[in-house]
Nucleic acid binder design. Structure first.
Length: 204
DNA sequence: TGCCAGGCCCTCTTTAGGGCCTT
């Protein structure tokens, strides 16, 4: 288990890769972890104000027709900001999701006080033997049960949460600690990968 | 006109380049 503060693990589906290039989110999914358990979920489609490409429709299964009935980004992101509260945040390849989170909250003059950590960077250190560090590969590598479709925000955030908890469990066993401070997870993510594995984790 | 992400990480590195990962 991590420290007493809750963690919100979140994932965006978006129109593309870069908010600076005009891309917007089309779906947000998130789960809250408390004392090592998944206790709350958040999911919402949102209308980005533009039509999405056929590539994104095929990639996510989210269609322009579905988005036509969705609330605008500003409304959904306001609700999501309320959901986050002061909790710490985790995402898979967090630099990607953070860019969209920051851009959308900036648009509505909102923010967050929690710290953000990245499950992909942690996996590169803790699960070095995995074939690669894509979310789906890590889920298979860890034998995590799945029931859902990848590239939908809630399912991806649930799978990220399961991977995160599995890595916490591995670190707990390594350090023989009952709780793992979020700050330690962040420190591992920011430590050069080879150094982290050789001198901090020192597996085997 | 045509192109356009960006941060991390490894190595054939550090005065760089290319793959990974996210949609």
């Amino acid at each position: 288990m991590s420290d007493a503060k809750n963690i919100v693990i979140f994932d965006f589906e978006t129109t593309g890769l870069s908010p600076k290039m005009g891309d917007r989110p089309i779906e947000i999914g998130a789960v809250r972890i408390k004392n090592g358990l998944l206790v709350e979920r958040f999911q919402a489609l949102m209308h980005p104000g533009i039509r999405i490409s056929s590539f994104i429709e095929n990639f996510t299964g989210i269609s322009n027709k579905m988005l036509a009935e969705a609330k605008p980004c500003a409304e959904v992101m306001g609700r999501f900001c309320d959901f986050i509260g002061s909790d710490n945040l985790v995402a898979h390849n967090a630099s990607f999701d953070k860019r969209f989170l920051d851009a959308e909250l900036h648009r509505i003059s909102r923010g967050y006080s929690g710290q953000i950590s990245c499950s992909m960077l942690l996996a590169r250190r803790v699960l070095r033997d995995a074939p690669n560090h894509k979310l789906g590969t890590l889920v298979d590598y860890l034998n995590i049960q799945t029931e859902g479709v990848y590239h939908r925000a809630l399912f991806d955030s649930e799978m990220t949460a399961n991977v995160w908890l599995a890595m916490i469990n591995k670190i707990q066993q390594h350090y023989k600690m009952k709780t793992i401070p979020f700050a330690l997870m962040q420190k591992l993510c920011k430590t050069p990968a080879a150094f982290a594995h050789r001198t901090i984790l020192n597996w085997k």
